[in-house]
Amino acid sequence: MRLSRRDFLKIAGAAGITSVLPLDLIQKAMAGSGDPRVIWLQGQSCSGCSVSLLNSVKTTTIDDILLNKINLEYHSTLIAAAGDLAIKGALGPHPNLTELGAFENQWLMEGTELKFDLDKDGRVNLVDFNALCRQGYILVVEGSIPAEDAACPVKFCDIGGHLSMEEAFSILSQKADKIIALGTCACYGGIPHAVPNPTGAKGVSDKLIELGYSKPLINIPGCPAHPDWFVLTLLKVLAGQTVTLDSKGRPAELFGDSSSQKVHAKCLFHPSRWPGTEPPKAETLGDYGCLETLGCKGKNTWSNCPVLKWNSGSPGQNGVNWCVEARTPCCGCVEPDFPDGKTPFITGS
């Protein structure tokens, strides 16, 4: 359930909740255009999926998304704020624990008990505040989540404001309407998860199992994720449409389980595209032709890269290139076993 800003102010005003919380603070908490809220957490990421999203144009552009489609409340690479302001989110006085408890009990109770992490000055930080007040957000996770040692003050991944990625994910995932794991690291652990997994990194679905949470989750893998995969899925979610998932939790229309959805089946060198003749085969790296004997993972990778391609130049247009067209074997970056199950990437002579 999500309260709109107007609904909230109406009931808050009628019930005199302003005596519990300063009205300007409530307004700040509920600020924004009323667009769907998106909180974007970067764990063990390289920011490549964020950079890739900036390349969006086929379906729509990033400025259209930010200005007209969503309210991107937290994204450490893009937000104007920094430090305490970024984390605490409100310039005015912060509510204390009692006030927040009363606030939750009266207006936003959903039957689950929230735990607050008070930072060192005893105030409630933005993450808690979001979890409490801001119902109905989409949580986007970029990067994997390492396993922290509760007894150790040093963390493998801090997101700021005395919060580790693990803590922030635990708090924010509880109250999210929906979670989108963006990129192979967030979906399945990706490279940080690779042997010897120095930090105990996990993807979102494994972390949710560990936490015992059941949440609607969409995996959009890729290294990086293709901007259109994210934008198409996000727009469907915003429109309230059902996103059918494949066996790996990915949008089935973009990835899928059938043999016809393999990269190999869609590839320009698939025999079906060479009627009456054999497709050319690359004998050595750098040659033009099918790269199957040189390490291509297209037969064990399900994605629409060969059709959609990458780095489109204008609305409605497919991209200008993709790995195999650039004479490079597909490295299987959208699969749960990337990279360990896909290496060596290059084989043969």
Binding site: G48, V51, S52, L54, N55, S56, V57, T61, C223, P224, L285, G286, W310, N311, S312, G313, G319, V320, N321, W322, C323, E325, A326, R327, T328, C331, I346
Partner: peptide, 27 residues
């Protein structure tokens, strides 16, 4: 975005280009 599109003409895709290998560029 257009600069990335330009680089992808030879890189396969950007970010994270495909075609860089010891020995040159595959594209």
């Amino acid at each position: 975005r257009k600069v990335h599109q330009m680089g992808a003409l030879f890189g396969g895709k950007l970010p994270h280009p495909a075609s860089f290998m010891p020995g040159g560029c595959l594209d």
